[in-house]
């Protein structure tokens, strides 16, 4: 079970050579509650990948503080300890697959953490089951013989085998087709539900994270502009276009309907949208 992860006024800059620095994130304060599914959304270059690395302890804040539970993450030993609680799936993680079997690839992380024998085997089995890879494939198949979607899930299994309490994913759905995205989303939610993990999905595309996330943190130019629910996003509480993003197509439709005073029970459900439109059409017809 995850603990609360809290960022307090966190900033980070990349050195540009000489004395110059490129600020990537500045003054970010937020909490990720245990079991939260948070989407951090922003345009390319908004600083969201940097934030993902700060949230998993791969980058240390230049200023501000990071807390996991009651404990402040400061100094090498607490950082190393925190890294065991947090896992990051990098963008295009299949580029980092390297072993000659799927099993060895998934086992790489936990083995590095010193696990051996039955515990290591259990971790690999559990992680493979969570992402829906068949056990028969593990020992015999090369990760490079898997499809794009399977490779992405194999890479995710490698992170899940570390059993992170806080799982951060950088653009996990990019480049995947419909089946690949659906399979990955199911794996994520299985892990979330079974382990009570907190999940942070970093993306520039709201549509894929929409059905998974309970809250959306909007990032622009290194700052966390706002944290809102999907309902608030649909209601138009944020100017997404100015943040370089857009609502998914059904969201744009739902917003238009709601703005015209047409009630929609569940905007993410096509039959609900259709029902609302049919009702309106019938009412218009009756009034003619």
């Amino acid at each position: 079970m995850a603990l609360r992860l809290r960022l307090e006024d966190v900033s980070f800059s990349y050195p540009l050579g000489g004395r110059e620095e490129a600020p990537a994130i500045s003054g970010v304060s937020m909490s990720i509650e245990p079991g939260d599914v948070l989407c951090l959304a922003g345009a390319n270059g908004s600083g969201k990948s940097t934030l993902a690395q700060v949230c998993t302890g791969l980058l240390s804040p230049a200023s501000g503080a990071l807390y996991y539970g009651d404990r402040r993450i400061q100094g090498r030993s607490s950082l190393l300890q925190f890294r065991r609680s947090a896992g990051l799936l990098f963008q295009n993680p299949e580029d980092q697959l390297f072993a000659d079997t799927v099993e060895k690839d998934i086992a790489f992380g936990p083995r590095n953490h010193g696990l051996r024998g039955e515990e290591l085997a259990r971790r690999v089995r559990d992680a493979a089951a969570l992402v829906g890879l068949s056990l028969d494939d593990l020992a015999s198949r090369s990760p490079f013989s898997l499809s794009g979607g399977e490779q992405r899930r194999a890479a995710l299994a490698g992170v899940l085998a570390l059993e992170p309490e806080v799982l951060v994913l950088d653009e996990p759905f990019i480049g995947l087709d419909y089946e690949g995205r659906t399979g990955l989303a199911e794996a994520l939610m299985r892990y979330h539900d079974e382990r009570g993990a907190s999940i942070v999905i970093v993306t520039h595309d709201l549509s894929y994270a929409w059905s998974l996330a309970t809250r959306f943190g909007l990032i622009s130019e290194g700052r966390l502009e706002n944290v809102m629910t999907s309902d608030e996003l649909l209601a138009g509480d944020a100017d997404l276009a100015s943040l370089g993003m857009q609502l998914p197509q059904w969201g744009a439709l739902a917003r238009e309907l709601m703005q015209a005073g047409i009630a929609v029970d569940d905007p993410a459900d096509p039959s609900s949208l259709a029902g609302a439109m049919a009702k309106r059409k019938e009412a218009d017809g009756a009034g003619d």
Binding site: Y178, E179, P248, W250, P270, S271, A274, G275, M277, A278
Partner: peptide
């Protein structure tokens, strides 16, 4: 569209649902 492994446009799914409702 779905049978070809693609995620159909939301608008086309809603139109399909509308047809089921007789529209």
């Amino acid at each position: 569209v779905r049978s070809m492994g693609l995620d159909p446009l939301a608008v086309t799914v809603v139109a399909f649902e509308l047809e089921k409702l007789g529209h």
